[in-house]
Simulated scan of single mutants.
Amino acid sequence: MSTFNVRPDIDAAAAKLGSTLGAGREINHLPEVLWDGEQVEMLATGVYGKGNGLLAMTNLRLIFFKHGITGQQVEDFPYSKISSVQWAGGMLGGTLIVFASGNKAEIKQVPKAAGKGFADKLRMHIATGSVPGSPAAPPAPAVPQQQDVAGRLATLDQLRGVGAITDAEYQDRRTAIINSI
């Protein structure tokens, strides 16, 4: 398995790929197509349009990115425009079908585990409207304060683990969470 040193969020997502064969160039150039503040949540390989590329799920949109020697292809699907998602899996891989703004995009040869994970997470984004600028999700049921604090501390540990916050920020936020009890 290849290791990358691009950005903490991209490196963490790339580390979960079963194989980066045919996607190394895309992983290295992915920051060029990301928006300010956009964070990568998941990556997978697949075939769309004219060839093999990288499927990236961020906190704002789904991106298919193909970076070739002579050019590149970028197609994005903001979550607010996605109306439906289908996953058709086979023995090793399958096809992720995204319906957005009246169009249908079929991304083929997506590894089975990654494709199912993408479909499930896209459905969650659609169902909850959990993206900036989309209608508010229904209020979550009340969570006992002890569980809320534990969840907040776990999230904070994850952010520090992927390098999204510094040790000093971690200590400040941890102290603030504990003081809120």
Rank of each mutant, 00 (worst) to 15 (best):
R123E: 15
V131Y: 14
T155I: 01
P139Q: 09
A15Q: 11
S84V: 00
V149R: 09
Q86T: 02
G53A: 10
S19M: 11
S180D: 05
N28H: 09
E169R: 03
G151Q: 13
W35N: 12
F118N: 04
L62T: 02
G46F: 04
T70S: 13
G90H: 02
K112F: 11
M1T: 07
I69A: 14
A105G: 02
M42H: 03
A114M: 10
E75G: 00
A164M: 12
R173H: 05
F64K: 01
G115W: 07
I165G: 06
L62E: 02
I177H: 01
P132T: 10
G163Q: 03
E41T: 04
W87E: 07
A127Q: 12
M91R: 04
A164N: 00
E169C: 07
D148F: 12
G68I: 00
P141F: 09
G71R: 05
G90E: 05
I177G: 05
H67V: 11
H29L: 15
G46V: 05
A15W: 03
T20V: 14
L43Q: 02
K112V: 09
A127L: 13
F4W: 08
P141R: 08
G37I: 04
T20E: 12
S84F: 12
T70L: 15
H29M: 15
A12V: 05
L159C: 00
A114N: 08
I165E: 03
G133T: 04
T128P: 00
E38Q: 03
I69C: 01
V47P: 00
W35R: 13
T95V: 13
G161F: 03
D9M: 11
L62W: 03
R25A: 15
A88E: 10
Q146M: 11
I10W: 04
K81D: 15
R123W: 12
A136M: 12
M57L: 15
W35K: 12
I82R: 01
A88G: 02
N59P: 03
K112Q: 13
T3A: 14
I177Y: 03
P111A: 08
I10M: 09
M91E: 05
A23D: 02
I10E: 07
A13K: 04
A142T: 08
P138I: 09
R152F: 09
P111S: 08
V110S: 06
R173M: 13
N59K: 01
P141S: 11
K16P: 05
E106R: 08
Q171W: 00
A100L: 03
R174V: 04
M42V: 00
T166F: 08
L30N: 03
G90A: 07
I97F: 00
A119F: 07
Q72F: 13
D148R: 13
D9S: 09
A164C: 02
V149M: 12
V6K: 04
D11Q: 06
G93V: 00
D120G: 11
T45I: 07
V47D: 07
K66L: 15
A154P: 00
Q72W: 10
T20M: 11
S80F: 09
I126Q: 08
V40L: 05
G89P: 01
L96T: 00
I69S: 10
T45H: 02
A119G: 06
G115Y: 06
V85C: 06
I82A: 06
A113W: 01
F77W: 06
L122I: 12
K104V: 14
P132Y: 11
G133S: 10
G90K: 01
R152K: 14
D76M: 11
L60M: 13
S130P: 02
